[in-house]
Amino acid sequence: MSEITKTDPSKFLSDIIGNSVVVKLHNGIQYSGNLQSIDGFMNIVLDDGKELVGNEVGKNFGDVFIRGNNGT
């Protein structure tokens, strides 16, 4: 039963590729965008990335690479 409902992180990540996501960093800044890819280090590539500081939209980026160690 639990086998069906259990979704470990790697499966979760492969499921959500292509969806729009929000990535929170240690420093409190959030980046939203379309998840293009993610690897085992949790390095993340976003498409159409937007920076959110607090609740305000900061800069707009095209492609964004986030080094894995920064993600919360």
Partner: peptide, 11 residues
């Protein structure tokens, strides 16, 4: 909790 791995990353 939906799932986790050996690093205790959690979904």
């Amino acid at each position: 909790l939906i799932g986790f791995d050996d690093f205790v990353n959690m979904v």
